[in-house]
């Protein structure tokens, strides 16, 4: 599995998010269970690759999502995926990340991502719901889906990212 194979897998996940997943989600839950599979891979890149790789992948795939599904405004996913991918990489630098830690970081980052999307849309007055409602309506159900996805792809994703970016020992600040 080289770098291009990994990008290919992420592109495939990006396609699945908008096409197959809406059919698997039961009727009535379409806007409640929202997949963030690509974002999970961006976080894996931060945890087991390097933070620069996570930053690049986050910006790239976020921009792709913003352009392809351009509705009200552009840039939300680019900004949040890039920022959170980089932050996850920063948290994981020079540490051995276990399964539990990885899941905790992915859970927190997904929660922050969905909250960020909510706050940006409410600042620009595109959604007027309360934050409490947003948590119950879609942030929590999406988080569950995300954790299950991360659990399933933990081992292969870890292997792929560690292979293409061997972890540096220490002192890699800049």
């Amino acid at each position: 599995m080289n770098r291009y194979g990994l990008i290919g897998i992420m592109l495939l996940l990006f396609m699945l998010e908008g096409t197959i997943v809406p059919w698997l989600v039961p009727v009535g839950f379409g806007d409640r269970i929202v997949p963030h599979f690509v974002f999970a891979f961006v976080l894996f890149a931060g945890l087991y690759g390097s933070r620069y790789m996570a930053f690049g992948l986050g910006i790239g795939f976020g921009l792709l999502q913003d352009i392809v599904y351009y509705g009200h405004l552009m840039g939300v996913h680019t900004f949040l995926m890039g920022l959170l991918g980089y932050t996850a990489g920063l948290l994981a630098a020079n540490k051995r990340i276990t399964l539990v830690m990885a899941l905790a970081i992915i859970g927190l980052a997904t929660f922050a991502y969905d909250s960020g999307v909510y706050f940006i849309y409410s600042v620009f007055r595109i959604s007027t719901e309360t934050y409490d409602w947003a948590i119950i309506d879609h942030i929590a159900p999406s988080l569950f889906l995300q954790l299950i996805f991360a659990l399933v792809f933990y081992i292969p994703a870890r292997r792929w990212f560690e292979r293409i970016a061997p972890r540096q020992k220490s002192g890699e600040e800049e």
Binding site: T19, P22, V34, Y69, G71, V117, Y121, H138, S142
Partner: peptide, 10 residues
């Protein structure tokens, strides 16, 4: 396709 974003269901 359907957009995977709860505030932008294009």
């Amino acid at each position: 396709a359907v957009s995977p974003d709860p505030y932008n269901r294009t």
